[in-house]
């Protein structure tokens, strides 16, 4: 009885959402899939590039002017390209890599390339904040560069890396909303191509609510984790 009444309530205020329930389930899944996969790949790339930037920078533990200069410029260039243009520009590369330039899987390539440099910069900032004296103390007890990277830099910067990762994932969710442009699907696509284009406002609002919910959950979990690991 109550279920039917509740259903009536939702049908009355969000008729199109109820009618397109399956679309929502699918597009939510697409958003999560794109965020997760490109997040993991971009995360690994970003951490590697971020570490490389810090250790090869002047005064770093493996200072190397040329490597630093090249990485620094690459990161700047890729960060400067607007995502919607990046989608189009790297389409041939995407086709080469995943066999198609259209669809959810195809969207992973530009999402990863769009996110990795941004994350690399964030990782670099987090690692640079590790006190130079702590690095020097590790060198003084005979730590090797690899030991300093894994046992000092990443360990000491962990709370900041978690915070920074949250920011990156949230911005990545924002980017997935544009994946619709190449048939990537996802909640952003649903909001625009169904909600906005067909004047079905309740669909746009519902898509927004789901995205907000995902963002809030990630933010809250991230904050809790960062606080738990932070002993400064």
């Amino acid at each position: 009885m109550t279920t039917i009444l509740a259903m009536d309530f939702w049908t009355s205020i969000m008729p199109n959402v109820v009618a397109n329930k399956d679309v929502f389930i699918q597009s939510t899944w697409e958003t999560i899939y794109m965020t997760l996969v490109s997040g993991i790949i971009a995360g690994i790339l970003g951490i590697i590039i971020g570490i490389a930037l810090v250790v090869t920078a002047p005064g770093g533990i493996l200072a190397n002017r040329t490597t630093y200069w090249i990485l620094d410029k690459l990161v700047n260039i890729f960060r400067s390209i607007p995502f919607i243009i990046l989608l189009a520009v790297i389409a041939p590369f995407t086709r080469l890599l995943v066999g198609t330039s259209i669809g959810t899987t195809a969207a992973l390539v530009p999402l990863t390339i769009g996110t990795a440099p941004f994350y690399a910069r964030q990782v670099q900032n987090a690692l640079v904040d590790v006190d130079r004296g702590i690095i020097e103390a590790a060198e003084a007890v005979g730590a090797s560069p690899m030991q300093i990277i894994f046992r000092v830099y990443l360990r000491e910067a962990l709370p900041d890396l978690i915070r920074t990762s949250v920011v990156t994932v949230i911005s990545l969710i924002g980017l997935t909303a544009m994946a619709g442009a190449i048939g990537g699907g996802g909640l952003g696509n649903t909001a625009i191509s169904i909600g906005y284009d067909r004047f079905e406002n309740d669909i746009t609002i519902m898509a927004m609510i789901i995205i907000l919910a995902i963002v809030f959950i990630i933010q809250i979990l991230g904050d809790l984790w960062a606080r738990k690991t932070d002993h400064r």
Partner: peptide
Amino acid sequence: GMIFQHFNLMNE
């Protein structure tokens, strides 16, 4: 061994 003015301990 070496010790420093600002201790340089690992905070985490």
